[in-house]
Amino acid sequence: MISTRRYRLIRNSVFVWMTVVITAGFLMSIPKIDILEHTARNLYFHVPMWFTMMAAAIVSVFHSIRHLRKRDIESDLRAAEAARVALLFGFMGITTGVVWAKVTWYQGTSVWWNFDPRQTSVAIELMVYSAYFVLRSSFEDSELRGRISAAYNVFAFTTMPFLLYVLPRQLDSLHPGAEGNPAFSEITDPRMRLVFYPAIIGFMGLFWILYTQRVRYRLLKNSVENRYLNDNS
């Protein structure tokens, strides 16, 4: 069970932390770069989506492996809910990326999407994770569902480093970071790192809040359903 007091403390800290991050993201000065202009501030919001998705996928695969060893219901539903929130952040990442690309890569054209290697591979990644939920929904038996979807989730997780990091860097892409990790390379101005790194932590905290809420809901649902079954048997 989740300790309510500890949860409240972390939740409220994340609320304050992210409010400061958002405000600083707008107010702090940034280098004036041609084409990017103020959209450089998207670094604080678009890029942490992917870091958060990665963190959420790690949480998800951790619980899937745990489920394969212990065969308990809780780790199965924790894996599913972490993957669900990971997908949410992934979709927000790809959507914000499309908007950002429209005004930079494709400024002055009618192009919104052009199958850039990075965009294509993250789109595939999101489909791989969507398939996890399709797979889950195809089982009546909860033990079978837990075991097979946990095994699939381990596969899905192993594709992530290749689709997010290896493949896009092998191909010519408009996305920064084709030559290395954009977040930790010289191209990021030190002033922007002051907001960027806290933003990553804050969004991961936000993931934790949403994930914890979903887990509490699923445990409750489980408990209600079990009671109902016992009452009727």
Binding site: T4, R11, I209, Q213, Y217, L220
Partner: peptide, 11 residues
């Protein structure tokens, strides 16, 4: 989010 937490607490 805070409201949903309160509802979960109650349940």
């Amino acid at each position: 989010i805070a409201r949903t937490d309160r509802k979960l607490d109650a349940l």
